[in-house]
Amino acid sequence: MIDLEGLASLRTSLEADGYEIDVEEGERVAVVISATPAACAECLVPASLMVPMLEHALKVPGDRIDLTYPADHEQ
């Protein structure tokens, strides 16, 4: 079970930079972060940093998370 409070506060952060986050939990946790037209490209942390952040916020081990990131931020 993911931590909904953690998700809510991470969502606040992402929305401030113009990003949306969708989380679907099954056997694994699918996280999709997508850019809105107002997104600030340089404000999003690299995917390599977002995974541990999700780990912390959602209280889910990183190896259960499948992260889909805006294409230009994959690294």
Binding site: S9, L10, T12, S13, E15, A16, V45, M53, H56, A57
Partner: peptide, 12 residues
Amino acid sequence: SFTATADAMAVI
């Protein structure tokens, strides 16, 4: 707005 980001970074 970035409390979550900042706190997560501290853990990392």
